[in-house]
Computed example of a mutant assay.
Amino acid sequence: MNQEGQPAYRRILLKLSGEAFMGAQEYGVDPAVLDQVAQEVAELSTLGVEVGIVIGGGNIFRGAGLAKGGMDRVTGDHMGMLATVINALALQDAIERTGRFCRVMSAIRINQVCEDYIRRRAVRHLEKGRIVVFAAGTGNPFFTTDSAAALRAIEINAELMIKATKVDGVYDADPMQRSDARRFERLTFDEALERRLGVMDTTALVMCRDNQLPLRVMNMFAKGDLQRLVMGEPVGTLVEGAIQ
Rank of each mutant, 00 (worst) to 15 (best):
M1T: 11
N2G: 14
N2L: 12
Q3K: 13
Q3T: 11
Q3R: 06
Q3V: 06
Q3C: 08
Q6S: 13
R11I: 02
S17Q: 08
S17T: 05
E19I: 12
F21P: 08
Y27S: 15
Y27K: 15
G28C: 10
A32L: 14
D35A: 14
D35S: 15
Q36D: 10
A42Y: 03
E43N: 11
T46C: 09
L47M: 11
G48N: 15
V49Q: 09
V49I: 14
V51P: 11
I53L: 12
V54A: 10
G57L: 01
N59S: 09
I60C: 00
R62M: 11
R62N: 03
L66A: 13
L66V: 15
A67L: 12
K68L: 14
G69T: 12
D72T: 13
R73E: 01
V74E: 07
T75P: 06
T75L: 15
H78D: 13
H78E: 11
G80I: 02
T84K: 09
T84F: 05
V85M: 01
A88E: 05
L89D: 03
Q92M: 13
A94S: 11
A94F: 10
A94D: 02
R97Y: 04
R97A: 06
V104G: 07
V104D: 04
V104C: 08
R109M: 04
I110S: 01
I110E: 03
Y117N: 05
R119D: 00
L126M: 13
R130P: 05
V132E: 04
A136P: 13
G137F: 00
T138S: 07
P141G: 03
F142C: 02
A149L: 02
A150R: 02
A150W: 02
A150G: 09
L151G: 01
L151A: 09
I154V: 05
I156P: 06
I156S: 02
A158H: 01
L160A: 04
T165H: 01
G169N: 02
V170R: 04
Y171M: 04
A173C: 03
S179V: 09
F184N: 03
L187I: 06
L187N: 11
T188Q: 12
E191H: 10
V199E: 01
V199R: 03
D201F: 00
A204I: 06
V206H: 04
V206W: 05
C208K: 00
R209C: 13
P214L: 15
R216L: 04
V217D: 07
N219L: 10
N219W: 02
A222R: 15
G224L: 14
Q227K: 15
L229G: 00
V230F: 08
G232Y: 11
G232C: 09
I243L: 15
